[in-house]
Nucleic acid binder design. Structure first.
Lengths: 233, 233
DNA sequence: AGCCGACAGATCGTATATCATTTCAGATAT
DNA sequence: ATATCTGAAATGATATACGATCTGTCGGCT
């Protein structure tokens, strides 16, 4: 009894690989290859790719094929701007519903983040950052907004280049802002104040990233060669 | 030379019917029937439905089939809350980019809205309302946020019951708020003030709708009978 | 050498066919 | 009369097959 349809299976298969970076942006998704790898026909794979396309994780061009979405800088800006908006709102909506338990868990995660700064672990820092906000959003009463947050995060993950998500000088400030947001929530601040604080938290990170980028004079995003990231059979 | 793939054709076909109400919420989308009607096979139709599913316009259950999405009251609340958020942001982002031409066009539409109130034309009013905001969003620099606005509108359209989108006593206020928003933009107000004004504009409408609903004691949303809304061949 | 067109391989797009699951009507038993 | 069973019809899910389109390469021409 397969509890999961083959199209769902294909969806998870591809999605997993995009998330963990095995399929980098620009990697070409060939229907036939994926179908063979999963031992299914191309029809369910097409469906899976269509769904990923609707989620903006892959682009699909007629008679050409699909590839993991490439993020351009301007695209990145728009995504982060939207993310700031929905994260701010999600935080404000959740705030009045958070229990002391939530808050203490969030503080604990934040402490761990602080510790990852001593050892230099950008990847772990980023992970914990998502965990931190996930705790805050656990009680979010509006699933739509939560869904938008997740979409934003997924798009962010398409940037494997860590310089897009971690700026050394910025990390400490970020941890401090987390604490301040928790303070606001604990103090029962106005929802709008919480919303704007959370929003600024994201936009400040964005600004830091952009400053860091231009400072380090990174050349334009290059398209990775699909072949070079082929999965070894 | 068909510039449009059959799956896109099927998508537009269904989408059109959902938008204009021929397929009411709850209407069952039978793959085979739609395929025959379009004289294509079921494969492209499935793809089209998957895409609509990703847009939350239809629900698709394994081995059971697809139907036009049903909106529950709580769902409606979440949608409107999200819409208030993204419309507010879209308005604020657009504001500094609007030319006098945009503003005068918006005012003209708003005047027409005022006129529809004399004659009782709720449907026309709702149409013009979308037009009004569309003009404001023409220059929106963030396509993601604009996309979210459109998704919100589409979901709103699933509520064919006009009492969900038009409250007689509220309409006049709404027109007044439009003018006030335009005034703010024209005066070069702070983006945040514009954002909050636009947000309140939507939430106020929502509140009015809910008050109107409970006042008129509408029974719980009922699931329309798919058969009763069959298209006459 | 560089440009252009034809060919071949790869890949996508869709129709058709078959299998699986659900649904529902009608029969049967309690 | 109600509940349950059963089997056929409807519908969805997937595999396979074939045609269409694209892409890149090879050879000829200027």
């Amino acid at each position: 009894m397969s509890a999961e349809s083959k199209s769902q299976q294909a969806y998870r298969f591809i999605r997993e690989r995009i998330d963990d970076g095995r399929y980098v942006p620009g990697y070409r998704l060939v229907l036939g290859s994926i179908a063979r790898e999963l031992d299914v026909s191309v029809v369910p794979v097409r469906e899976a790719i269509r769904r990923l396309e609707a989620e903006n994780l892959v682009t699909f061009e007629r008679n050409v094929g699909a590839q993991v979405a490439l993020i351009q800088e301007t695209e990145y800006l728009h995504t982060m701007q939207t993310l700031a908006l929905v994260e701010g709102s999600a935080t404000a909506l959740s705030a009045p519903l958070l229990t002391p338990d939530h808050l203490s868990r969030a503080r604990a995660i934040n402490e761990r983040m602080r510790r990852t700064l001593d050892d230099f672990e950008p990847h772990r820092f980023t992970e914990l950052n998502l965990e931190f906000h996930s705790v805050l959003f656990e009680e979010c009463p509006n699933p739509h907004i939560l869904d938008l947050v997740h979409r934003g995060w997924n798009r962010m993950k398409l940037l494997r280049d860590s310089s897009f998500s971690f700026v050394p000088g910025r990390a400490l400030e970020s941890v401090g802002e987390h604490d301040r947001i928790l303070d606001l929530i604990e103090a029962g601040a106005e929802p709008l104040d919480i919303e704007l604080a959370a929003r600024r938290h994201r936009t400040a990170t964005l600004d830091a990233v952009l400053a860091y980028q231009s400072e380090h004079k990174s050349p334009a995003t290059d398209v990775p060669d699909p072949e070079s990231s082929e999965i070894s059979a």
